[in-house]
């Protein structure tokens, strides 16, 4: 972007591929945006890409649905995604730092186990986790959704890679010579250097938990604890003898991606510092 002076020849092909990719990604979003503006009568009768007239009534219908249960689901989603990703980031940062900068027996073993953990999709674990949580009587609680998401092998792997690259050993050595304890070293020296990496991990986890469906679907029985994904699904699968509330679902889907977009826009600048700090090194 700042490379105006170096004028490389921009190939047409890469541009076209990127453009196609962008359209591929944005088209469904724009479809949701447009479909959410349609009243139930317009949804299946008007052209796909024509805006409807029912957006405001859809929103007020959605917010009024079952005495505003949508708000409750939204708050729940924030608790799961916000709390879960914060805790996951802290765990990942500390363990990534430890794995990257300390030599201790079993380090390789732990790391290999984590790598193995990346290969196991979370979906496979949902039912065993449910059975375990049921055993200890914690199924159908907020913790049942939060706890399994706090340990994310992929995030720890990322944190380790990032810590290895971003924290020079000499810096830690200097700190030790100056008499800093290990705790001070981590909290004052290491973690500040890892902030861009932590932001990335936070975002990854936040989006993953925000979109997670199967774990809360299995864990939670009380619809007052549902996150948006499961809540909106109850609108979709309303039983064979009930019409699916398509207009509410579409509006709900649209509203539920707004916080994600906002989060990305506000967090973007941390990524920029990340890229630039990499550039000058």
């Amino acid at each position: 972007m700042t490379a105006v002076t170096t004028r490389r020849s921009t190939g047409l092909l890469p541009t076209a591929v990127l453009l196609a990719g962008a359209i591929y990604c944005l088209f469904p979003v724009s479809w949701v945006l447009i479909a959410a503006t349609k009243s139930p009568g317009e949804l299946f009768t008007t052209p796909t890409m024509a805006f409807g007239t029912g957006f405001l009534s859809n929103v007020s219908d959605l917010l009024a649905y079952r005495d505003g249960v949508f708000w409750l689901w939204l708050v729940n989603t924030f608790v799961y995604a916000g709390g879960g990703s914060l805790l996951a980031t802290v765990v990942a940062a500390v363990s990534g730092y430890a794995l990257a900068k300390y030599r201790f027996p079993g380090r390789a073993l732990i790391f290999n186990l984590l790598i193995g953990g990346i290969l196991v999709p979370a979906v496979v674990l949902a039912i065993p986790q449910y059975l375990l949580f049921s055993k200890v009587g914690m199924a159908d609680t907020y913790w049942a959704v939060l706890l399994p998401q706090i340990l994310s092998p992929y995030s720890i792997y990322l944190a380790r890679v990032y810590a290895t690259a971003a924290i020079p050993d000499s810096l830690l050595e200097a700190g030790r010579i100056d008499g800093a304890g290990e705790w001070t070293l981590m909290s004052r020296v290491a973690l500040p250097l890892m902030v861009p990496g932590m932001v990335t991990i936070f975002l990854f986890q936040f989006v993953a938990i925000w979109n997670n469906f199967l774990l809360p679907f299995i864990m939670l029985g009380d619809d007052g604890k549902f996150p948006l994904t499961v809540g909106l699904y109850t609108l979709l699968a309303a039983g064979a003898n009930q019409p699916a509330l398509y207009n509410l679902i579409l509006t709900g889907a649209l509203l539920s991606i707004i916080p994600l977009i906002a989060l990305f826009l506000t967090m973007q600048r941390y990524w920029r510092t990340d890229l630039s700090s990499g550039a000058v090194k």
């Binding site: 079952r66 679907f217 299995i218 029985g221 009380d222 619809d223 007052g224 499961v230 699904y233 109850t234 979709l236 699968a237 309303a238 039983g239 064979a240 009930q242």
Partner: peptide
């Protein structure tokens, strides 16, 4: 009352 998603998924759950 806890409102669930209906259909085959409800039975599995």
């Amino acid at each position: 009352v806890s409102k669930q998603a209906g259909g085959d998924d409800a039975a599995a759950k």
